[in-house]
Design a protein around this nucleic acid. Structure first.
Lengths: 254, 254
DNA sequence: AAAATACAATGTGTATACAGATTTTTGAGT
DNA sequence: ACTCAAAAATCTGTATACACATTGTATTTT
């Protein structure tokens, strides 16, 4: 890379919406960035329940910032589809529509099969190392038995596959999709505490890593398909068994 | 859809970043929305060249709005990866990095094959009608011989496939990717006026529509692959033949 | 008593003022 | 003449004030 670099991106997925944002080197974070990070955490962890109204003035009092950086954060969160803005009528946490879960899972399947396949085709030592580290961290996270921690660690593992796929555009889209699904996953975890065997998951992750390491793209794709298919089944069961009343009780602040 | 609708989205691609934005019914558009739409138009049409510095105060004078709605627009554009924000050092139009074109095209190929395949599997009369209309509009656009118009119409056709795929998450991602590529396409169109035969393109579009209509997913996928492969070849030729000096001359305002 | 309308309260949208950061200019020292 | 430093200018980041839209309420009218 770099010889013919005239400029930078067609659709650069970094820089803006990806992760903690422009932390850069040290500590100096703008207020807007802080608010954005904070709210995003709370939304993804369901501390802020879907559909919760987000009042600008209330936040400005609670958080000690003026409305300006809060509006800024809300706009960015809306671009991430984590918040819905209604013109002149405020913002609310993006609702979870169980009707659309099938579409979400369908797209996610496509993305994950592709990232895993490409990761196997391009296997880089750095990425393999990261995958193993993330799987170890996942194992540790499972010990805690805290859904929040487990789901986050699982996301981190799957995101490592994205990074390994060698295409940052697909990686960014897949990563975003996964984040959205994690919110659902966390919800399912809480509702039905259908304890899935974490040993199985860790082992499946391990197999995927090996398939990627050996460059066996077909196998890697098949494994991630099976792996996430189990997840899809759990999600479908969850959706089928969830009523409106049940759902509205979930995710209250406390 | 609709029976179990508790809420709305995991990662709803509408609402926020998609198109003209919340126009809703009538005319009332917020200033921020106007600025966003305007700047996006100018960036996508290369009126605002890649890497152009975007000064908030300058825009506020030129456009007659205060800095607030302009900042709002810039933040949204940054989330769309059309603008790059440097903390405390302003905004600029997202650069085009020719080094990353291969990655962009790779992701786009995946997305378009999937959308076309799924469109063929789900063929709805409404969507087929839209496809034909868009291809007719594309034919009309070709008459104008204005690259801007042709490229836009071509985008609209391919976006109709996205809408027909029945998965709004994939559709949104593919649509976004296509938009980014159109900027490249327009650039290539200007540089090397390698006039591709518009009749061929229209005919290829027609074949794709028929494959979708007949529900032949494999054929549809193959056709869109070939179709966009020609495009990829043109892009690669363009990238190979473009030097920094050439590029920096392109897209100046005037 | 019900419906409609005017009014008050609340909250978003925008403008402006101020504070902090960055870059440029200017001036002293070598 | 060149270098470095200090100050000014410029621009971003944030706070605040005001204008407008929406919503709920109370009063009036039928």
């Amino acid at each position: 890379m770099g010889s013919k670099t005239i400029a930078k991106a067609v659709n650069d997925p970094d820089e803006t919406g990806s992760d903690d944002g422009a932390l850069g080197d040290g500590v100096r974070q703008s207020s807007g960035q802080k608010v954005y990070t904070l709210l995003r955490e709370q939304i993804l962890s369901l501390e802020l329940a879907p559909n919760t109204e987000l009042d600008e003035v209330q936040f400005s009092r609670e958080l000690g910032f003026s409305r300006t950086p809060i509006r800024e954060a809300l706009i960015r969160l809306a671009s991430d589809s984590l918040v819905v803005l209604a013109p002149n009528r405020g913002a609310r946490v993006a609702p979870l529509d169980l009707d659309q879960v099938p579409q979400v899972l369908e797209a996610l399947e496509l993305y994950e099969r592709a990232t895993t396949r490409w990761a196997a085709l391009r296997r880089q030592p750095v990425h393999l190392a990261l995958l193993e580290q993330r799987n170890r961290e996942f194992a540790v996270a499972c010990e805690t038995e805290d859904p929040r921690v487990i789901v986050e660690a699982n996301w981190a593992f799957h995101d490592a596959i994205n990074q390994a796929c060698g295409n940052k555009y697909l990686a960014a889209d897949c990563s975003k999709m996964l984040r959205g699904v994690m919110r659902l996953s966390l919800l399912a975890f809480r509702q039905s505490d259908a304890q899935l065997s974490s040993y199985d998951v860790i082992e499946q992750h391990r197999e995927m890593i090996e398939a990627i390491r050996s460059g066996n793209a077909d196998l890697a794709e098949e494994l991630v398909y099976q792996h996430s298919d189990e997840f899809r089944d759990r999600m479908k069961t969850f959706v089928a068994g969830t009523s409106t009343a049940d759902f509205s009780l979930v995710g209250r602040r406390g």
